[in-house]
Design a protein around this nucleic acid. Structure first.
Ligand SMILES: [Mn+2]
Ligand SMILES: [Mn+2]
Ligand SMILES: [Zn+2]
Ligand SMILES: [Zn+2]
Lengths: 124, 124
DNA sequence: ATAATATTGCAACATAATCGCAATAAATTA
DNA sequence: TAATTTATTGCGATTATGTTGCAATATTAT
């Protein structure tokens, strides 16, 4: 399964890296000039996730949001990190804050999906 | 909007309080003897959430899960708490563990939706 | 240029959740 | 107890998100 370079892939990745925020398939499609099929966008996004280029967040609305691991001009993002959804500007961003939780040793944590909701630094 | 007591509401609440775990509409419906319409179950669940009796969790599968605030025989659960989804037994439970995160003061956190995934204490 | 196959578009499908509306039933009043 | 009010329910239709099969297309290597 060797990857190939296509305009679609480039366009999707460009949108996500420049915005730095997490976006839904719908939002991504609107940001792209050329017409790309919905199924194709999902397939591109999931492939990027498999390759470790993007990561997927599920918000309280049950929708999938995708974000790049490396924002432009900022440091790379740790695998397990928080996300913040602003109720005002509706953006979802990756936070670099550490998550500390103390749960019984018997539990084995493999993945963390944490979304905080409230007012972001731009809107407060 | 004064609430009325109905067999449906009692049945739904009973299932959730006795199990102590978070359940989806589908799973709840299966646990109830009498036939209850899907839309009705959702309406009952959402009303209970509005009244502060239940709370809603959205897992990585994008589905809604509902859980009681007070398990049987255990202490009441704090409003903001973690959830743990076991990949083996597939149950979603509320954890009493404290969540500590340090984010810039400019952010105003109103709600926390955090689901850990892995192996629970029963399955490890 | 040719061949191999990864990628795409399209339509169909699957599932979760909500909504409008008429029928029903719980609670209140007479 | 009987009548009234209206919260609740059932049903069907609808919306929305996301996935899949398959043929057509386009990228990459030979
Ligand atoms: Mn992120
Ligand atoms: Mn909980
Ligand atoms: Zn904001
Ligand atoms: Zn388990």
């Amino acid at each position: 399964m060797k990857r190939r370079n296509t305009p679609t892939k480039e366009a999707v990745l460009e949108v996500l890296t420049t915005t730095g925020k997490a976006m839904s398939q719908d939002a991504i499609e609107q940001e792209i000039d050329i017409n790309i099929n919905r199924a194709t966008i999902y397939r591109v996004l999931n492939r990027f996730c498999d390759d470790g280029v993007l990561h997927k967040i599920v918000a309280e609305d049950g929708k999938q949001y995708f974000a790049s691991y490396n924002k432009v001009g900022e440091q790379e993002i740790a695998k397990n990190h928080l996300h913040f959804k602003c109720l005002i500007c509706e953006t979802i961003e990756c936070l670099h804050a550490e998550v500390n939780f103390s749960i019984p040793k018997a539990y084995i944590v493999q993945d963390v999906n944490c979304v905080l909701t409230g007012t972001c630094k731009n809107c407060s």
